[in-house]
C-alpha cells in the first residue's frame, strides 16, 4: 500500500487531505505524553500558562517507553490506549495540536473537536514496541521527569509508521473495518 510521507510540524492543508485507512510515515520532532502528563498540560492551558513545547502543528504520541539499554536511544515504545486521554485531548487540539498517535477508539467529543480544529488521530501497532523503537532516532525528557515513564519526551523520528483512524471529515476506520469483516 502506498505511504504518504509527512514531516512535522503539520499544516492544516496537509492534515485536511488525510483520509482514514491511509498509511502515513512521519519524520521530524514529535512529543510523548500520557495520563499524568496530560493532566498537567491541560492545567497549564486552563491557567493560561505556556506549555513545555509549542503545540502548534505538532503531534503527541501516547507512549510510556521502557528505559533505554546502554547505547540505545530509547527502550521499547509502542502506543498506549488513547481513550484515557479523551478528557484532555480537545483542549490540546484547540491550542493547535494537529495529530495524536495511540491505539483504540476516541470519544465522539474528540472526533468532533478534530473536525472543528482540523486534527487527525493516527494509530501505530499496539504491542509492536521493539519494531516501532527502530524509527526513533533521538529522545530526551523535556518536562516532568518526576513522572518516570510518563515524563514528556521530545522524540526525533524517521519514517515512523502509522495509519489514519479519524480524519477531519469525522470518519472512523474502526467502524469501517468491522462493517467489512463482521459475519453477516
Amino acid at each position: 500500500m502506498t505511504q504518504i510521507k509527512l514531516t512535522t510540524p503539520l499544516s492544516d492543508d496537509v492534515v485536511e487531505k488525510l483520509r482514514i485507512g491511509q498509511r502515513v510515515s512521519i519524520s521530524g520532532t514529535i512529543y510523548t505524553g500520557r495520563d499524568a502528563a496530560h493532566k498537567r498540560l491541560v492545567e497549564l492551558i486552563e491557567q493560561g500558562k505556556e506549555l513545555p513545547f509549542d503545540p502548534k502543528g505538532q503531534i503527541i504520541y501516547y507512549v510510556g517507553p521502557t528505559p533505554a539499554k546502554p547505547g540505545k536511544v530509547i527502550g521499547s515504545a509502542g502506543p498506549t490506549t488513547s481513550y484515557r486521554m479523551d478528557p484532555y485531548a480537545p483542549k490540546l487540539y484547540e491550542v493547535g495540536l494537529k495529530a495524536t498517535i495511540g491505539k483504540g477508539r476516541r470519544s465522539s467529543e474528540v472526533i468532533n473537536t478534530m473536525k472543528e480544529y482540523k486534527g487527525v488521530y493516527l494509530t501505530a501497532v499496539g504491542g509492536a514496541a521493539a519494531l516501532i523503537a527502530r524509527s526513533i532516532k533521538e529522545a530526551k525528557v523535556i518536562a516532568y521527569p518526576d513522572l518516570g515513564p510518563e515524563a514528556v519526551h521530545e522524540l526525533v523520528v524517521e519514517d515512523f509508521p502509522v495509519i489514519v483512524v479519524n480524519d477531519t471529515l469525522g470518519g472512523d476506520l474502526y467502524d469501517e473495518g468491522i462493517k467489512i469483516y463482521a459475519a453477516k
Binding site: G21, G64, P65, A77, G78, A130, L131
Partner: peptide, 26 residues
C-alpha cells in the same frame, strides 16, 4: 491490513528476542 499487522507482530517478536528488549513497552 490484518495480515500486515500480524506480520509486524512476528517481526517485532524477532527483534525483541534478538535485541533482548521487551516486545511491548507495557
Amino acid at each position: 491490513t490484518g495480515k500486515e499487522i500480524l506480520q509486524q507482530l512476528v517481526k517485532n517478536a524477532e527483534i525483541a528476542c534478538e535485541e533482548k528488549v521487551p516486545m511491548c513497552q507495557d
